[in-house]
């Protein structure tokens, strides 16, 4: 993976909602409409996140009738990507708990 590509991948993964989308899609491919029903954001917001994940090469589009179904790009990239999404999410949760033990609820 070249640096530019890696930069796009890390940029796409910097957002917690995009990591959540990626984790959801790694379990089961879905359309933007299906994802919007599962997540607390609008279909438009889902579509925008899917587009940046696709631009980073993390997702592939597949036509499903009038809709487009998204699935996570196959291994070996997806192995590293799903690890980063999962482990990154775990650290976000842990560090929010750590910050709250110091009485800083704003960071949680």
């Amino acid at each position: 993976m070249d640096d530019e590509r890696a930069g796009a991948v890390f940029g796409a993964l910097a957002d917690p909602m995009r990591r959540r989308l990626l984790t959801t899609l790694s379990e089961h491919p879905a359309t933007a409409t299906e994802l919007a029903t599962k997540l607390p954001i609008t279909r438009q917001a889902v579509a925008k996140h899917l587009s940046s994940l696709s631009d980073a090469g993390l997702l592939e589009r597949q036509r499903a009738g009038r809709d487009v179904r998204y699935h996570v790009t196959p291994a070996p990239l997806s192995n590293a990507v799903s690890w980063m999404a999962e482990v990154g999410g775990q650290w976000d949760d842990r560090l929010a708990r750590l910050a709250s033990t110091f009485g800083d609820q704003d960071r949680a």
Binding site: M1, A6, A80, W83, M84, V87, G88, W91, D92, L95, L98, A99, F102, G103, D104, R107
Partner: peptide, 12 residues
Amino acid sequence: MTDLIERELALP
């Protein structure tokens, strides 16, 4: 490529 996660925060 080494898989890498990095997080930073300031604690009071």
